[in-house]
Each structure stands twice: as C-alpha cells, then as structure tokens.
C-alpha cells in the first residue's frame, strides 16, 4: 500500500518535473512545479512528517510559487519570446545532467544504508518533537536565520525600489 502510494507519487513528481523543464510557457512551468511540490508534500505525509508537509505547502506553494506567478504575470512574460537554446546545447545539458545522475546513483548503488535504522521513534516528524529540537539544539541557527531574513528583506527592497532621482 505505502509502496504503491510512494511509486504513484514518485512517477507523478518526475513527470511533472520534466514537464516543468520542457514547458514552453513559463506560467505552465510554474503550475507543473506546483504539482511537483504537491507530490513532494505527499511524500512527506508518507514519511510521517506532517508538519513538514504543511509548512512545505505554505512556503513553497503558498508563498514562493505565488511570487513567481506574480512576477510572470506582472511582467507579462508568457509570450514564447524565450529563444530556445540550440539543440546541441540541449544535448550537452542532457548529457551533463544524465551523467551526473548516473554517477551519483552508480556511486551510491548498493551501498545505501542508514546508520541509525534500529532506533525507532515514529514521532520524530511531529510538531512537538521538531519544536523541541529547533528551540534547543538549533536555536542558534534559528537566530542566525533572522539575520539572513533581515538582510534579504533589505536587499529585496533595495533592488525593487525605483530610482528616486532623475
């Protein structure tokens, strides 16, 4: 059962990811990517990481991709103005990515094992558990992420500002 759900989701996510890459219109790409994100959220649920799944939806589907759509729509970029890269270039890209995949999988194949597989704490993905870890062990990175956000915010505002002078 679980395996079947996993495989279904996996197949859908790979297909939609490919469609995302190959879609001519950027808006379609965005929508395919959102579908991919939903399947990934499904995988999180399968992994009993519900909190993660919901946050994933909120952040990626709910915020980031909306931003993408926004920009696409504001700039009205859907016209197929994107000049396609040459076939050779595409082939090169495919070979590069393919060889990356083959190398990675080949190098890992057969040696994938998880060190702590004997421990079993199915509650690990629940929000209480995550909260404890986040606010004890990982509180420093949590604070540091604040700097990151502040910087990104200032940066985004700075970039987005229209020039006041002239």
């Amino acid at each position: 059962m679980t395996l079947a759900i996993f495989l279904t989701l996996a197949v859908i996510s790979v297909i939609t990811a490919l469609l995302m890459v190959f879609a001519k219109s950027p808006v379609h790409s965005v929508l395919y990517l959102i579908l991919t994100f939903f399947t990934i959220a499904g995988q999180y649920v399968l992994l009993n990481a519900q909190f993660l799944a919901v946050v994933h939806i909120i952040v990626y589907a709910g915020a980031i991709m909306v931003l993408f759509l926004f920009v696409l729509m504001l700039l009205n970029l859907n016209k197929d103005t994107e000049p396609q890269k040459s076939a050779g270039w595409k082939l090169a890209g495919a070979i590069a990515a393919g060889s990356l995949l083959v190398t990675m999988v080949g190098a890992m194949h057969g040696s994938i094992q998880i060190a702590g597989a004997e421990q079993s704490n199915p509650q690990v993905g629940l929000v209480e558990n995550l909260g404890k870890v986040l606010f004890t062990d990982f509180v420093v990175p949590f604070e540091i992420a604040g700097i990151l956000f502040l910087a990104a915010m200032v940066g985004a505002v700075l970039v987005g500002k229209k020039d006041l002078k002239v």
């Binding site: 990481a49 993660l52 994933h56 990151l148 956000f149």
Partner: peptide, 22 residues
Amino acid sequence: STYLSDAQGQIMVFFIMVVAAA
C-alpha cells in the same frame, strides 16, 4: 530524518525553506 529517527534532518529542511524564500 525519518529513517534515522532523527529530527535534525527536518530542521535542516526548514532552514532550506527559509533560504529558498529569501
């Protein structure tokens, strides 16, 4: 994270999301 029964992995995911948003 799930297979290791270790929450760190998921915490890292949150940070990645943070950064992705930024």
